[in-house]
Design a protein around this nucleic acid. Structure first.
Lengths: 203, 203
DNA sequence: ACCTGAACACCGTTCAAGT
DNA sequence: ACCTGAACACCGTTCAAGT
């Protein structure tokens, strides 16, 4: 039976979870789908196009679920949290999304949601995207690192000697903290900046 | 005459500028250095280690130059600006740094500078790193996109139809703006959040 | 110590040819 | 329309052997 474009994306995401991004090859994907590697190129022009489709699928839940009726800052926080959770659902999800310049439908929709929140809240339309981009970079950057989980011993090892105790405290408290706490902290840092530019919304 | 570790890094950065990160292969680097590809492995355990050394070299100017005697927020801004400029000095510089979990000396030093600024300013030591990380993610994310310069027509093309004019304005103003203006704007957004948590420093 | 030569085990992508 | 088979032009990495 035939392979649809969406089957290829689904198979690729399954393989992503078991092999990771670096282990995701067209040949392995072909084998997983019961097809020659070359066969995939009938459905996708190249690997990059497939990765873009995967990224869009990963982001889908962020664009789909309706936002709660809440103040703009709570809505924006919710969007950031949803994005992180969506990225965490697949191994290397953040790297996949970061690596593809996505102009697929769901990604566009998610971005439009963020812009609408900001514009409705009173941000000038010609600055809304300037605000959205940093939040997006932050969520991606944080989650990439969260998913990389490079053996945490590294830093402590390298710097066990010669270091300022305050700096030690700083690094240790970052490495030992729960990722979700650090994430929320950073997101709030951002929103403080935003709230500062805009009258706080009435609850 | 013999090849030193630092010569390999220098050659790799030269090649990076002409070929880009995706075109930087061990074989091409070998040819550029007048050496077989395998020969490089005497100096570096693998390509990843070489990329880490390249990243550290790229970041070097951020760690080396002393900071001006200024309020903490101005110092932090300066550090962010320097990091962006350092990344921009080499093609795909931001991607190189983002792709390597760097615990090389210069990167450590640059991070310590940021932590010291924050701690001196009065941030609790166990939160300083939580503040530093988001700024770092932002600078990297912004600069990666700035260096990708994916034909700006893409978005406008895809969305010339059916779209909300306010959203159009938002996207257009982002795509047409000078990257350095957008960068400074985003950095300030962050600092507003920080200043909000800390008594503003006396000039 | 530092590098060559040559191989190993892979890649993404193309494309005639099959069904 | 959808895929096979087989090739092309690469990769990173290893390692005996040379100097």
């Amino acid at each position: 039976m035939q392979l649809r474009r969406s089957d290829v994306v689904t198979g690729a995401l399954t393989l992503l979870d078991t092999e990771g991004l670096d282990g995701l090859t067209m040949r392995k994907l072909g084998a997983h789908l019961g097809v020659q590697a070359g066969g995939i190129y009938w459905h996708f022009a190249n690997k990059q196009a497939l990765l873009a489709a995967m990224a869009d699928r990963i982001i889908a839940p962020v664009a789909t679920e309706p936002l709660p009726d809440a103040p703009w800052d709570a809505q924006l926080t919710e969007l950031g949290q949803r994005l992180r959770h969506a990225l965490l659902k697949h191994r290397d999800g953040a790297r996949v999304v970061a690596g593809t310049y996505v102009i697929e439908p769901n990604t566009i929709r998610a971005g439009e949601q963020a812009l609408r929140i900001l514009i409705t809240a009173g941000f000038p339309a010609d600055r809304a995207a300037w605000v959205m981009a940093p939040v997006f970079y932050y969520v991606l950057g944080h989650t990439i690192e969260e998913q990389a989980q490079h053996a945490e011993g590294d830093w402590t090892e390298r710097n066990s000697d010669e270091a300022d105790p305050a700096l030690q405290t700083a690094m240790t408290s970052m490495l030992s903290a729960a990722p979700s706490d650090r994430f929320t902290f950073g997101l709030n840092l951002f929103l403080d900046g935003l709230r500062h530019r805009l009258p706080h919304s009435p609850a």
